[in-house]
Design a protein around this nucleic acid. Structure first.
Lengths: 217, 217
DNA sequence: TTATGTGAACTAATTCACAGCG
DNA sequence: CGCTGTGAATTAGTTCACATAA
């Protein structure tokens, strides 16, 4: 088993949430163990890959049986830094922003978006999916009080860098960037860029190829 | 230059939309050429990688100058199968679904979601961000009439497979799946799964590592 | 026999190094 | 020189093949 916490490959980390999802469902059904094969089957992956991924966490399973579900959940959460629920804020309450505010999927994985910020005076003071919307100027104080470290950025391209700067100034350390802009941040800030169109690109290409290769139109 | 249309690596395809985005902005500023270096800089990528990616499309640039912007836009769109705008439908008008209906980013890349379907009687007959919402039972006729091939799936996990089946039966050939479920589809249907939590996972891990490595808390 | 765990082989992707051109 | 274009080297990720344990 590999125990080097610092070097889990990114593709493995990206798969962890889906593993969690599968085994949490089994947990609800009161199953006590899972095999890598079970997980692989549920997700159409190669079982060896699943085993290797799980190996990175340092957990060890028992042959013929698999892994103890509770333990596996714990080490995966641990590996993801999700042991304790994390709080986040969101800047930009447009279509995508309000969707993310209402997306319960994140809570399941320990991310709780607890407040939103925007410049639109019509929204300030209201709530979206139960979360309060503040004016951007309140960001610094709010971050100081709440000690939140993660910010979700869902503003239009033009506003992205300045909203990012505001977050950084306020003390945010991790930015999940949904805007199509490369953000300039100081070294101590981590940015994760999310690009919806890249998935759409792959779908388009694969579909075009199928059509070209003579599927019924 | 590589001209084999059928074998552009997936990572390259995933980067194409961001290239398009950069050069379309330059086009608006009436620039006529871009170098791979320009694009790489705008996106914090390695210039060689950009050049290789562009090479896959078959286009050829001129040393010292770069690529002709119009031509580059054309070949990228071509490579992505986005020459002619594509129409799509969406099933599931929850938080995420309505966000995608209102997300103008897709139009830019040739995906026009022109109708939505749901089972909620309160929504049927209404419009969301200007797009009409129909009952799921209307799907077959609507697809037949509109000849739409792409479906965006944004229903909760429990409903995913049955909504997927409905799409497939109606004649949808490409499914962009935002639900956390592995879909069972016949061979001729292409499924692209989108998993928001995988990006969040990476952000968490990178942030935790930073904090552990002694950033100011 | 059915699982884990892992070194080894393989495949894919990125990056390097450099030739060639304007 | 600053750029393209590309073979070669490198690195990263996946898959195979097999040893081992219950």
């Amino acid at each position: 088993m590999n125990n080097d916490q610092n070097s889990i490959p990114s593709p493995s980390i990206r798969r962890f949430p889906s593993y969690l999802q599968v085994i949490k469902k089994l947990e609800e059904e009161n199953r006590e163990t899972v095999s890598a094969t079970d997980i692989a089957e549920a997700l159409s992956l190669n079982p060896v890959q699943v085993r290797k991924d799980i190996g990175y966490t340092g957990i060890t399973g028992t042959p013929k049986i698999g892994y103890e579900i509770q333990e596996l959940i714990n080490v995966l959460m641990q590996a993801l830094g999700w042991q304790n629920a994390r709080h986040a804020l969101l800047v930009g309450t447009g279509a995508l922003g309000s969707a993310l505010l209402g997306y319960r999927g994140f809570d399941e994985y320990g991310l709780h978006i607890i407040a939103a910020f925007d410049v639109n005076p019509e929204l300030i003071g209201s709530t979206i999916h139960g979360k309060p919307v503040f004016g951007l100027e309140e960001l610094p104080n709010w971050v100081k009080r709440s000690r939140v470290k993660i910010g979700v950025l869902t503003v239009p391209a033009e506003a992205a860098q300045s909203a990012c700067d505001a977050m950084v100034d306020a003390g945010i350390l991790g930015i999940w960037n949904f805007s199509p802009v490369k953000l300039n941040v100081p070294d101590h800030v981590v940015v994760q860029k999310e690009d919806l169109s890249s998935g759409l690109a792959l779908l388009s290409v694969r579909l075009s190829k199928r059509l070209a290769d003579g599927e019924i139109e």
